[in-house]
């Protein structure tokens, strides 16, 4: 009985008006959660955590660099899952969500590259190195831009979304390359210090809490921005349809 209700409600999400309403309700909460987590995370990152004994204060960049890098990759994985659903079941709201992820993912990739560059300057003595991880992250940025460009180039939005979904799936090969690049090639970028599943993290406990808070914050923000953008796309594409007209008539 309960299972059936869940199933029916889940299927209803495929309907634009229902999805729109849900996104409208959910998005402020996610933004609120982001602000809260980010406030705690930033306070701890900038004031509570002691300076590193080797890197002094410059390591504080980690608290935005690492969550952004994770989110840039996680966002791509989310888009890839949405792309599979969109291509297999042809649900329009899912197609739109997959496309809405690209600009946000690109933004996080940009943050990751920019802050990494700012961190590299005092620590490595250079803004940029043609190291495996940096290069593959740059490639990820270009894939994100390619997806956005391809989607925008089509007159027919649905066709554009589906074609871009294929590109998302092809680009997935880059994700393991980024993830393992620091282990396959020993270059300037340090290896992974955080381990969730195997072994111990090589980071001191006192440095962990802000990272956790910032990671949660960034994830909530991704969700919020995704819903906001998907909502706009729906509104834009359905502007001649009844539900948009009715919704705007109500609000006016």
């Amino acid at each position: 009985m309960i299972w059936k209700t869940i199933k029916v409600n889940f299927h209803r999400l495929g309907s634009p008006p229902t999805f729109y309403r849900l996104a409208q309700v959910l998005s402020p909460w996610l933004w609120g959660g982001f602000v809260l987590c980010a406030a705690i995370g930033l306070y701890q990152a900038l004031y509570v955590v002691p300076p590193d004994y080797q890197q002094s204060d410059s390591f504080r960049i980690l608290y935005i660099h690492v969550p952004s890098a994770w989110q840039a990759m996680a966002g791509y994985v989310v888009m890839a899952i949405l792309a599979v659903i969109a291509l297999v079941w042809r649900i329009r709201t899912v197609e739109i969500m997959a496309m809405a992820g690209a600009p946000i993912g690109a933004a996080f990739t940009f943050i990751c590259l920019a802050t990494g560059s700012l961190w590299g300057r005092p620590m490595w003595g250079t803004w940029w190195a043609w190291d495996a991880r940096l290069t593959s992250m740059l490639v990820l940025l270009f894939i994100y831009l390619g997806i956005m460009g391809l989607y925008a180039a089509f007159e027919d939005r649905r066709k554009g979304a589906r074609v871009a979904c294929i590109l998302i799936l092809v680009g997935v090969v880059n994700i393991p390359i980024i993830h393992f690049s620091v282990e396959w090639w020993t270059t300037l970028h340090q290896g992974a210090t955080i381990r969730l599943f195997s072994g111990e993290s090589t980071m001191h406990e006192s440095m962990m809490p802000p990272l956790v808070w910032m990671t949660i914050a960034v994830k909530l923000m991704f969700g919020a921005a995704l819903l906001d953008r998907a909502r706009n796309d729906l509104l834009d594409q359905d502007r001649r349809k009844g539900w948009v007209q009715a919704r705007l008539g109500e609000a006016a």
């Binding site: 900038l46 004031y47 300076p51 204060d57 933004a107 920019a114 700012l118 300057r121 923000m221 921005a225």
Partner: peptide, 29 residues
């Protein structure tokens, strides 16, 4: 503990970029 002088500019610029991009992600939609 505010970041000390030597690295302050790098740290604050990074956090500034982060804030600006997030703000844009909020405002643009």
């Amino acid at each position: 503990m505010i970041p000390d002088f030597e690295y302050a500019i790098y740290v604050w610029t990074s956090y500034g970029i982060f804030a600006a991009v997030i703000a844009w992600q909020f405002l643009q939609p």
